[in-house]
């Protein structure tokens, strides 16, 4: 389901029937070759349109959890399913095709330094073998969505850290994947930029994408109203469920999500949500 096509749905929680399961971890354990267990018997179920923060100090296996979801690592035991697909069983081209349905954002952005913002984003679609016309059709709206359409021809080195991270978000969502994974997306950013990135991610969640964000910054996660789980000693423990929203937050977010995406919107959003977060 393209996330652009359903701008009115705020989250699964407001829908009358329960949306399909997007992410399912069943008794997943991961032990690396140094024999130190990284994940122990982890269970997790996310439905389409859910948003989840996974917090925990560095080295607790947050990245591993995400890697299991996009098939960069295999679970030692247990089963990892994304949109009904057993990710651990995928190899080669089937894994490649599966990854087109998952957007990934990294702490270090992983932008290509000698390509412009537009080229960095379009590169994804080219690498997937899409047509030029389709690339043109998707590029500008995506850049608008992260508020960077005016910097399309800039090189990554000419952008601030926050802007670079927004480029990497644009790259992750340009093929409209139903699942968006952000591995410490705010790790290199100051508070101002970090909250803006989180708002962008929440905004995308408002369009229907399932989003998982990892961070070591407990405070930042707790500032938002989204569910938070903590990864501690290889186990996922819920810190805050979806029911404990601050009053008025949902309303606030839905108001944001309903406005058409544009650069002014993202600035308006920042003012809006800054209030909420502040």
């Amino acid at each position: 389901m393209p996330l652009l096509s359903n701008p009115n749905r705020v989250s699964s929680r407001s829908a009358p029937t329960r949306p399909p399961v997007m992410v399912q971890l069943k008794a997943v354990s991961k032990v690396y070759s140094n024999r130190i267990p990284c994940l122990k018997h982890v269970n997790l179920t996310l439905r389409r349109g859910d948003f989840l923060f996974v917090i925990g100090p560095s080295g607790t296996g947050k990245s591993t959890l995400l890697k299991l979801l996009y098939g960069a690592e295999q679970a030692t035991t247990g089963q990892v399913k994304v949109a009904g697909v057993d990710v651990g069983a995928l190899r080669g081209d089937r894994l490649a095709k599966f990854r087109r349905k998952v957007g990934i954002v990294f702490q270090d952005y992983k932008l290509i330094p000698n390509r412009t913002v537009a080229d960095n984003v379009a590169f994804v679609l080219q690498a997937q073998g899409r047509r030029q016309r389709e690339i043109q059709r998707r590029l500008l709206p995506t850049l608008k969505m992260v508020g960077l359409d005016h910097r399309a021809e800039a090189l990554p080195s000419q952008l601030s850290g926050g802007e670079q991270q927004r480029v990497s978000i644009a790259r992750a969502i340009v093929s409209t994947p139903p699942l968006l994974l952000a591995d410490e997306p705010t790790g290199n950013l100051d508070f101002e930029n970090a909250t803006q990135i989180l708002r962008t991610l929440q905004n995308l969640n408002g369009y229907g994408a399932t989003v998982i964000v990892t961070t070591h910054d407990r405070q930042l996660a707790m500032l938002s109203s989204q569910p938070v789980m903590e990864l501690r000693q290889g186990q996922l423990q819920p810190l805050r469920g979806p029911t404990t929203h601050p009053p008025g937050y949902e309303q606030n977010l839905s108001g944001v999500a309903n406005t058409p995406p544009s650069r002014t919107n993202s600035q308006g959003l920042s003012a809006n949500t800054a209030k909420t977060l502040g």
Binding site: A72, K97, A127
Partner: peptide, 17 residues
């Protein structure tokens, strides 16, 4: 290697890479 890594992560097939 940056480009190749990203290509793999965004689902470029091996042949394409």
């Amino acid at each position: 290697r940056n480009e190749l890594e990203i290509m793999q992560l965004v689902g470029a097939t091996k042949t394409w890479i």
